[in-house]
Design a binder for these strands. Sequence first.
DNA 1: GCCGATTTCAAACGTTTGTTTGAACGGTGT
DNA 2: ACACCGTTCAAACAAACGTTTGAAATCGGC
Lengths: 241, 241
Amino acid sequence: MSTLLTLPAKSAPAAVAKVPSAVTRLTLLDTAERLFAERGIDGTSVRDITKAAAANVSAVNYHFGGKDGLVEAVFFRRLAPLNDRRLTRLEAAIKHAGASPVPLEDILDAFIRPSVDELRTGGYTNHFLRLMGRCLQEPNPKLETFLVGVFAEVVGTFNPHFVRALPGLPTGELFWRTSFMFGTLHHALYTWSRFETCQFASMSGMPQTTRLTGEQLVRSLIRYAAAGMRAPFGSEDPLPS
Amino acid sequence: MSTLLTLPAKSAPAAVAKVPSAVTRLTLLDTAERLFAERGIDGTSVRDITKAAAANVSAVNYHFGGKDGLVEAVFFRRLAPLNDRRLTRLEAAIKHAGASPVPLEDILDAFIRPSVDELRTGGYTNHFLRLMGRCLQEPNPKLETFLVGVFAEVVGTFNPHFVRALPGLPTGELFWRTSFMFGTLHHALYTWSRFETCQFASMSGMPQTTRLTGEQLVRSLIRYAAAGMRAPFGSEDPLPS
DNA sequence: GCCGATTTCAAACGTTTGTTTGAACGGTGT
DNA sequence: ACACCGTTCAAACAAACGTTTGAAATCGGC
């Protein structure tokens, strides 16, 4: 339930030189992250994980209290610093803007860049990027409430600045455009992170120019999302049937 | 493998008055669609399906040759007419445009509208919409190759018209913007179709103005995607750090 | 009313799932 | 040397998994 980061038993006294080995714990987290990204959570058994991690089957239950605890730990390990980065970058953009509204591109940069950039540079592999692109649609209900809670603070902090940066846009429309931006980001992460072996690359004879660096992907995403969120709203020309 | 729509045994002779009952088959497809959307494919057992459908456990194997066959049938039943609709609408837009390039909004309309609109009006429930939003990220490899094959024709047909409608846009950038549009659409379908019971609605105190009709969602999506795909491309002002 | 084909059914198949158990291991402090 | 604590391990647990089986039930055509 609420035992998100509580280590297994490890009675808290003398908490100085803690985490004696924790190598098995880390290996389990890494391999679980990789396998979850490749086969999904339900498609990965604890035996798959422990076998790939060269650990015992019961290690998952010992270190994480069960498979559910491992799932939460896998996501929490990445999501917490990711969202910290987002908030930090937004703070910087707010300070840089002074009293005037934060430019839309800066808000999007603070939101998007950590997903693509910081996650990779911190010794992270591409596996969590694939997992990120999928996480919102994982059917695990516990995970869903957990993710919603983690994201709530971020969205709540970003939303007022979107409102200021896009004056005149109705609240409902802004909600949906934010959701569109979310979907754009997640699908792009999923596609980009697995592009090396992606079957979609052969869909329409795609050339090699589709390979992007992380920085290029960030810029493309911001360009696309900024233009989309700034799209004129109102009863313009009706669409043809 | 390639037995996508082949009925179980049913030796083909006297193929006139076929499909004697097929009520069990249809019930299984409907309930499987619903449960797949709610719990994911791996999270749904054949016993869950057959129990909810008031059928026998072996019915899945009899009618579809196994769970994999059922999965393919669930997707194929919706995807085939959906993509037919897309191609038909694109044809109409091409004819309407004459020799000039098809307007970007018309291309997007032909691509997006069937997903939101036609799928619902044809007696479809919302369940496949949720499944649609998730299908590209289902870890089932067989399903993936199947979906890629189904979508290949559509993408191959739409791409040349995107090229004409967006002159000057590099091929690589166009690929990614198309992918962005794809992600936008799928995430929007997922969010919109489950909005009634969606936890995201409570994330930032969203008002009731976020409820959209299908038509409103289509127009919002087209506005957003059109603006995003038309975003200026080049080495403009560098983003702030 | 009977026959052959089609469909349903209860029961069981072997495998895999997540989890638990209790003993053995490997350090550290005394 | 001893006891202690955190960790690992092989073995087993009941439950659920997809699938198979062979016998009933159902139906249409003659």
